[in-house]
Amino acid sequence: MTRKQRRLILIGSALGVLFVAAGLVMFALRDNIVFFYTPSEIVAKAPAPGTRLRLGGLVRQGSVVRGEDRAVTFDVVDSERQVSVSYKGLLPDLFREGQGVVAEGVLISPTQFRADNVLAKHDETYMPREVADALKKQGHWQPNGPPAGAEAKK
């Protein structure tokens, strides 16, 4: 086997692996990414019901209703719209009325959302960054966080 042939085998296998990986990445990116929406973006962009997405906003004060068997419903609001979310399971420690939340699940209608995961992701000020950004864009952002957040920081 000449040096050239060896090099060809090497380059060929490298390209082969790269192509497989690129293919996997393209395929996975098409099917496995989830978009983030705020309640008013759901109205604006109107994703089809049944779409899997992440919904972020604030949990409306007084909207959390706990039902049988760990079922829970609450409203996620931003400055303009609200979406009611139904979820069954345990909520993370940081879930509180008035605070930011990100829920992942399926959109049933533009105002109804079924979550299968409520995220505990947060930074030190306990506000998911996506939610903070969205609120800033709508001009409803206080640097110290919303009232409940401020209370938590003290």
Partner: peptide
């Protein structure tokens, strides 16, 4: 400006 998340399924798949 689109916000997306790439989660575990992507990585498991690739």
């Amino acid at each position: 400006g689109e916000k997306i998340s790439v989660g575990a399924p992507f990585f498991n798949f690739t």
